[in-house]
Amino acid sequence: MSTNNETKQAIAKPGDSIKVHAPGTVANLVCGFDILGLALNEPCDEMEIKIIEEPKVIIHHNDNYNLPLEPEKNVCGVALLAMMDKLDHKFGFELTVTKHIKPGSGIGSSAASAAGPVVAANKLLGNYFSNEDLVQMAMFGEKLASGVKHADNIAPCIYGGITLIRAIHPLDIISIPAPPMYVTLVHPQIEVKTSDARQILKKQVLLKDAIKQWGNIAGLVAGFIKSDYELIGRSLEDVIIEPVRSILIPGFDDVKAQSKEAGALGGGISGSGPSIFMLSKNEKEARAVEVVMKDIYEKIGIEYYTYVTTINNEGVKAIGN
């Protein structure tokens, strides 16, 4: 628990409940592997959480993904158990989840599952914990899902907008301002597990590739801050991760090339895939990119979903009952 909360009291009233939307996220943003991410306005998961007297976590799923209900085996449950540890197990939580972000989609399904419950519970506790505390708890869920504690999806899901993870130990999260942009995504209905996508990555990289990657990351962050669309487009290049992971995604090269021809600033693999995202300056270009994506996957013959959305600057948010 952060020092600024040490004198606060967790306000817990059994029976109190809240509903939230937990947004999908795009991690890496092409060149920023494990350090950059943004939150989306669509898609999002729906969750309702209630404080209960008994110190345990009860999970209900209103979806067809057959996710485990045992808290220790569920991404939502692991995050809430981490919160209960901080609260000395004085009470528990009952959680009902309706997932709209398919697991293994590359759009931050596990991050939404991990972040949504702890943010919702924290609202019921009178915002007892800081956002940084919540990220730390939610990262236990990401570790269960992928085997690694990473925050590039968790941070934007909780903070909203675009975030930079400068460091994990100690955790250092920076919110990055950005100009208005549209995000077009295509989600081919195949699964790429994050753990599998990590295993195929090279353990060592050439210095010249590292230098080029550092330049792109710095250029992308500078482009966001300066609202320089051209710089953003030039910096959306990955010479380390994408060349390896893209072979797992049918049609990737065509989607990327033809989307840029249709007006996109650029883009690439969303998280570990299989979803692909493209950034555009306006809705007209974003819709043109969606047409390109649909055409390519219709020809390949793979079922897919597409989204045209914008950056979510709130993160997990409460919704009406």
Rank of each mutant, 00 (worst) to 15 (best):
Y159T: 07
G161I: 03
I162R: 09
I162P: 04
T163K: 09
L164A: 03
L164Q: 09
I165G: 00
I165T: 12
I165N: 08
I165L: 03
A167E: 14
A167P: 00
I168K: 15
L171S: 07
I173Q: 07
P177M: 04
P180E: 14
P180M: 07
Y182V: 03
Y182F: 15
V183S: 09
V183Y: 08
L185W: 02
P188R: 03
P188Y: 05
P188M: 07
P188C: 08
I190V: 14
V192T: 02
V192D: 06
T194E: 04
T194F: 03
D196W: 00
D196E: 15
A197H: 05
A197K: 04
R198D: 03
Q199D: 14
Q199W: 03
Q199T: 09
I200S: 12
L201P: 08
L201W: 07
L201G: 06
K202V: 02
K203R: 14
K203I: 04
Q204R: 13
V205P: 07
V205Y: 15
L206Q: 15
L206K: 15
L206H: 13
L207K: 12
L207W: 13
L207V: 13
K208S: 14
K208W: 07
K208C: 08
K208M: 12
D209H: 10
A210S: 12
A210Y: 12
K212M: 10
K212C: 05
Q213R: 08
Q213T: 00
W214T: 08
W214Q: 12
W214H: 04
W214N: 12
G215P: 02
I217A: 00
I217R: 00
G219F: 03
V221S: 10
A222Q: 10
A222M: 11
A222K: 11
A222D: 11
G223Y: 02
F224K: 03
D228W: 05
D228L: 07
E230L: 08
E230G: 03
E230Y: 01
L231Q: 12
L231P: 01
I232Y: 01
G233F: 00
G233V: 00
S235K: 01
S235N: 06
S235V: 01
S235P: 06
S235W: 01
L236W: 04
E237H: 11
E237C: 07
D238V: 05
E242N: 12
P243Y: 08
